[in-house]
């Protein structure tokens, strides 16, 4: 489905995360819907919080069978963070997530997630 190529997998707040999302699928079932975004979310004891910081523009029509399609992206991580955090009750995780909804006949959605690290300045 997708491959992710980060230019930098460790980013400090206020700096840019960039990379390339690459589509390739020999599958006959091409997605009806697709989206990809840069976001953070929490794990741990508390209810989940999350926030999308950037949406990578991609349309299902761009996802062609047997053909590699690149979606380069660059996003500035906010100065206020949050940073990647691994505490006792809370974990804050940054990631890029790509999601495709396949045709009804194939009966499945497909989600891929690639974490990266955000550090303080």
């Amino acid at each position: 489905m997708f491959e992710m190529h980060f230019h930098n997998k460790l980013v400090t707040v206020g700096n840019e995360l960039s990379g390339k999302l690459v589509w390739y699928s020999p599958d006959l079932h091409l997605p009806r819907q697709a989206s990809a975004f840069v976001y953070w979310y929490t794990e741990g004891r508390g209810d989940r919080d999350d926030q999308t910081i950037f949406t990578i523009p991609l349309q299902p029509e761009q996802l062609i069978r047997d053909q590699r399609v690149d979606f380069p992206f660059a996003v500035t991580i906010p100065h206020s963070g949050p940073i990647t955090y691994n505490g006792s009750l809370i974990r804050v995780i940054w990631a890029v997530q790509a999601w495709v909804k396949l045709p009804r006949s194939s009966k499945r959605d497909h989600t891929q997630t690639w974490p990266f690290l955000v550090m303080p300045r």
Binding site: G44, G46, R48, D49, G81, P82, Y85, G87, I90, V92
Partner: peptide, 12 residues
Amino acid sequence: GPPSFDAKHNQV
């Protein structure tokens, strides 16, 4: 120490 974190259900 960690910086502040201020979400609805999780905070430092």
